[in-house]
Design a protein around this nucleic acid. Sequence first.
DNA 1: TCAGAAATGCAAATAAATTGCATTTAGAAC
DNA 2: GTTCTAAATGCAATTTATTTGCATTTCTGA
Lengths: 150, 150
Amino acid sequence: MKKVKGNTVNNIDNEKFLELLKEGGYKITHGRISILEIFSKYHAPLNVEFISKHIKKPKLDAATIYRTLKSFEEKGILKRVDLRGDTTYFELNDHHHHHLICKKCGDIEDVEICEINKLSEKVLKYSLKFKTISEHSLEFFGFCVKCQRG
Amino acid sequence: MKKVKGNTVNNIDNEKFLELLKEGGYKITHGRISILEIFSKYHAPLNVEFISKHIKKPKLDAATIYRTLKSFEEKGILKRVDLRGDTTYFELNDHHHHHLICKKCGDIEDVEICEINKLSEKVLKYSLKFKTISEHSLEFFGFCVKCQRG
DNA sequence: TCAGAAATGCAAATAAATTGCATTTAGAAC
DNA sequence: GTTCTAAATGCAATTTATTTGCATTTCTGA
């Protein structure tokens, strides 16, 4: 089990990645593994720039990262996160959660509480034009303790 | 009171616009009035392209529209909406509501139900790093009746 | 009516994301 | 292990959204 700055990426993770890729009908490539490792390591919404900077050894071309992220999203491996910013963020689609985003420094905290499912039903019940609701995005914006002071 | 495709833009609206602009310290210009009229008429999240297409008479340059939208957002006249798309959408910031978005045709229905405030408090209570929550975005994605059939 | 500040148009610059194509590579078949 | 082919990648060029600089025009208050 090798240590990587704050988090651990171990064989279990690696096996999980391989399984994900095989299920998706993907070829196992260095780039895809690297990208999954980075998402696993930082476990946060990431954009192409960040991923590009944090891939070591054989760097990946940005075009490849864009293609990979889009494809992973279609396969449900990643989830697009609607933060407010100029670039698109993705995160691992492993468990449902939301975010608290600092409007000053951009720091993000995961929010595990979600009571939207019942609300979802209610919304659908009162809707005039919709038949199904399959997803929702919910993000909270405010100030973290540090920025509230400053 | 002049009729405009489906909706009505009347003197009351116009007075409201003038007031908004004056409060904001804006000069009253054709462009700003036109933009507000369009938001009032369609009462939906709009992007620059849509606004540009729907301004008649003296067209507005896209750069001006971008500048105006950004400024209106800062003054709280408009609100940015985080849909999923390549462009940024804004809508009138007149009352708090959410959206139901069709993943196929992009149709949008307003959702007036919002029970997030109490959830917001709970989220803040359990948060480790945040001091305040000032806003939230909540969007529902699914299929409208038409697209569910097709 | 006039001056100054603000607003606008136009063109150029940025920046994110996509695409075409030639080359490389994973992985199945032998 | 070798070979073959579709898939994956890198690179360059392109597209599209948004921003910016600057010269010109237009509000608005004196």
